[in-house]
Design a protein around this nucleic acid. Sequence first.
DNA 1: ATGGTAGTCGAACTA
Length: 268
Amino acid sequence: MRIATWNVNSVRARHDRVLAWLRRTDVDVLALQETKARDAQFPTASFEELGYQVAHLGHSQWNGVALLSRVGLDDVRAGFEGMPTWGDPPVAEARALSAVCGGVRVWSLYVPNGRTLDDPHLQYKLDWLAALRAAGAGWLAADPDAQVALVGDWNIAPRDEDVWDMRAFAGATHVSEPERAAFAAVVDAGFADVVRPFTPAPGNFTYWDYTQLRFPRREGMRIDFVLASPALARRVRGASIDREERKGKGASDHAPVVVELDDAGTTG
DNA sequence: ATGGTAGTCGAACTA
């Protein structure tokens, strides 16, 4: 079984690319972020024609998350316990969607950006991650053998080697100590980064800004992650970042990230 | 040099 995550930066602008990528890669579960679509705008039928069940959580103009699965899509949930809201009045931001796919609870997550270090959005980001850590710790406390995947765009580069040049990020979000601490707290709660061991730094980025020729200059960031609960991490047999998908006209600014699992019941 | 590109909708905002 293979699970993938991809910030597509508009599922409608990327429709042909996503369909072609699914045909080419044949993944079982694909989590999407930044779909930038209301539910009625989401191209559900075209994914169903490829054999995937579809869940989408849309609404706002900029965010939106989805799950495509051909190994079942059960107990769909929007948001997690204690997830903070943003805005006054609160805006339905559509940042977290989960379902049980082939025995694994997969969360498609779009962590708040934070914007700048002095913006209230940064505290919202930290609160959001703290709530996710608390919720995740609760799931593992209730069932230490739970197979849970926290996948998506975390908008954090956990290590200096996860950006092309730390000097370019002085005073910026994504690399600050509190953001890295919030990410580390999720890891400490029991969710391991299962992609990094197969894609060691330097240079294995998942995102390259559209401006400044960042991609051809290989100036990117590693901010998209698959974090796995202990029982799921034991099943991981490989992982990759599909850098090829970032190439050419009409690419998202993020590359898909793919994790390969052992068949259930054959772990050990 | 306060830039650059891409997406939403159709001005301004988000990333």
